[in-house]
Write a protein that binds this DNA or RNA. Sequence first.
DNA 1: GAAAGCGTTCCGTCTAGCGATACATGTTGG
DNA 2: CCAACATGTATCGCTAGACGGAACGCTTTC
Lengths: 243, 243
Amino acid sequence: MSAPSMLGRAVSILAAFTPGRATLGVSELARRTGLAKSTVHRLAGELVQEGLLEPVEGGFRLGMRLFELGHLVPGQRTLRERAAPVLGELRERSGQTVHLAVLDGTDVLYLDVLPSRSGPPLPSRMGGRMPAHATGVGKALLAHTKRSAVETVVAGGLKRLTPRTIAAPGLLHAELARVAARGVAFDGEESAVGLVCAASPVHDRDGAVIAAISVSGRSGRLAFNRVAPQVHAAARTLTGALQ
Amino acid sequence: MSAPSMLGRAVSILAAFTPGRATLGVSELARRTGLAKSTVHRLAGELVQEGLLEPVEGGFRLGMRLFELGHLVPGQRTLRERAAPVLGELRERSGQTVHLAVLDGTDVLYLDVLPSRSGPPLPSRMGGRMPAHATGVGKALLAHTKRSAVETVVAGGLKRLTPRTIAAPGLLHAELARVAARGVAFDGEESAVGLVCAASPVHDRDGAVIAAISVSGRSGRLAFNRVAPQVHAAARTLTGALQ
DNA sequence: GAAAGCGTTCCGTCTAGCGATACATGTTGG
DNA sequence: CCAACATGTATCGCTAGACGGAACGCTTTC
């Protein structure tokens, strides 16, 4: 890999922030990015000038301009806006947490998360990502997308997140065939211990899969046979709304 | 203003995209940013490499990495997540479009927009911004924030968006005093012809105003005397949830 | 009170970034 | 149908600006 450009350095600073660490100082940013402290200090000043970082007590945090730019991204706007009523209704009907996700590389990226009103909060979050092979929405997407996307996921390695994560390519292919046949994917504690979900794919007018919807909850509190038809119907409704 | 840095150039490319123009080519980006075509071509390639742009037919569009980074911005995450149930309930009760906004410079920035289920869509959008003095949420924020913030808004010029926009500093000060006294701000076709709203401020545990909530709708379809207490109660509920 | 860690500043080095220019290709309009 | 125009891409000479090591002052820790 070539020496990073100035832009690459700046983005690596932005990427150093995580949900768990909202505020980082110059020295910590230098450690996380491998850049010199003076480089971080200078670049952080420029990022502040552009509104991508803001100075706070204890260091810096990501700036609101990123939030603005993030919401101009067309790959989520129309879909998320069209999906919102369908997701809201699915959440009311199922009583559980509802997700909208797309495939992005070997991961799923959550475009929207509607938390259950009564259940405990789940770890997923809007703008967050998870390995596709280890989630219901991911398997729903992979089962209906190009073979090459599945091969990319397999080539990237099937990381085991829980004892139940599918980690063998042959098992994944077999599972995706089952998902394709029944139109719903299940996550039985594959992404996290204690979490289960049912998911269904959403298609565009050309029949290509573009997103997946899921209903998720704690194991023991989510009846697959009840929510599977609900999520399948919601996905068909959204597919219809996108024609 | 100094010559822009490479970072400034890159951000100006990202900022060239608007809700109305999702896809832009090299020449159009050069026109909008004032940069040389070869500069745009080179920087766009680097932005693609970092995931901040993605190549599509006809040019480029903003990339999903921006959506991800945008959702790591702490200045919206906790507040938006805590507010979501309150906003949802306010939308059900009022039947109108509901907003959550913060003050950002001289503008309000919309952190969340819950569209009415039955009414026509409004132009506001998540991640969008409007001049603070010309919106209900903006006046609710300005009425309860530091005098210096109000002076900043006034110094920036009170642009008239409709014939009813408050454009004189004295009138704005008087209006903010009224808003402070009754705890609710009204927008009577000040931000857009045909649109009205009622808004109330949200405070943190130290009593500082951090956001505002509003109920918005088409004039003639929104009864101020009905929604004003609703939005005021919702803002108090959210203030309570943030203690 | 010494050591460690922080953020900030300086400055010599040198290369990465700039954009003018040229070119190939596609589009448009008369 | 073809000239004019617009697009995107590639090249390259030039130098301004980016890099980071080192030093420093201040704060924190033990």
